[in-house]
Amino acid sequence: MPRDITPEDIVILVDGRGAVVDLDGPGLRSTHDYEIISDSGDPLQTGMFPFMSAELLGHPYYPPDDATEPPVHHFIHDLESFLLVLVWMCLTREGPAKRRRDLSSTQQTEQLSALRRTVFRLFEGDKEVLSLAKRHLMHIATRRRLVDVELLCYVSDFMAPLKDLIFEFLSLISIAYEDNRRDTQAVYEDALRLFDKHIRSLQKEDPSGLSKKPRENKE
């Protein structure tokens, strides 16, 4: 299992395929906490707080009645990290390599303040803040209206075509947690089918020019 999944550990190859690498670069690690967890039953478990499951930070989503130990790292935690990377990109980026200027602007509109609070709670707060926000997100995951109001409405315009993917990926992971799924290959295949479906949809419709704009920027 990758164990440590962050934006800087994911690369897109020239043929469009994605790959996970372990660059351990200084970028995000200069602004986000990185931890080796030794009291979780998994001494080799590592991760960066913003992209770690709240379960691994000590807040189980659906704890069994007879639970006496904290959750041990499992494949579903890696899938959640991929989801959190996707959400982070969609909230904090205007487009390829373009940060959202409104996150650092001096404007104080209600919409911008809500966006900043959402980014803070999910990715910039302390462990307790991050854990509670992620746990809440998992508990509303299958309720589209709530997810729209509390998360998806803050996705940047450029990334808006990915809202359905975020919701369906979030729902898949939440249900896997609730059902305590351990059929690793089957869950991975469900996730891959989900991504394949949305890739085909984007290639067919391309409503915001997601595939065209990177080519134009490169040229």
Rank of each mutant, 00 (worst) to 15 (best):
V129G: 02
L13Q: 10
H32V: 06
C90S: 13
V119P: 06
L84T: 03
L13T: 07
A19T: 11
I10D: 07
P71C: 10
Y62I: 01
L84S: 14
I76V: 14
V20M: 12
G125W: 03
D15C: 09
S113Y: 09
S81A: 15
G27I: 03
K98D: 06
Y34N: 00
L115C: 05
V129C: 02
S53C: 10
V11A: 10
L13N: 11
L79G: 04
F82H: 07
D102F: 01
H32S: 08
V119G: 04
D102H: 05
D22F: 00
A114C: 02
K98F: 11
W88A: 09
D65Y: 06
T92A: 09
T6L: 01
S30W: 01
H73L: 15
Q111A: 13
T31V: 09
E69S: 11
Q108C: 09
I5L: 12
S113W: 10
H32L: 02
S40W: 15
S53K: 05
F120Y: 14
D24C: 01
E80T: 15
L13W: 11
P64Q: 14
Q111G: 02
P70S: 11
S40T: 12
D65K: 03
G47D: 09
K98G: 01
D126E: 13
D15Y: 10
T106L: 15
E124P: 03
E128S: 08
L79R: 06
L112E: 13
D39N: 02
V21A: 03
F75R: 08
G25D: 05
H32D: 00
H74A: 15
D78S: 07
I36F: 08
G41Y: 05
S113N: 13
L44S: 06
R93E: 12
I76M: 11
V72A: 13
F51E: 03
L83V: 00
F82T: 09
E55L: 00
P26T: 04
L83I: 00
P26N: 07
M48R: 06
D15V: 01
V14C: 12
L44G: 04
H74Q: 14
F123W: 13
L79P: 05
I12P: 10
T6R: 08
E69H: 07
L91I: 04
A54I: 02
F82V: 12
H59S: 07
L23P: 10
P64M: 11
L23K: 08
L84I: 03
S53A: 06
A114Y: 01
A114T: 02
L86H: 04
Y61F: 05
S40E: 14
C90H: 00
E69Y: 03
E80F: 15
A114I: 02
D42Y: 12
R93F: 10
P71A: 05
P43C: 02
G125A: 04
V119D: 06
F51L: 03
D24S: 05
G58N: 12
I10H: 05
H59M: 09
T46W: 01
I76G: 07
S30E: 03
R29F: 05
S113A: 11
L83R: 00
Q45P: 01
V85W: 12
E124R: 07
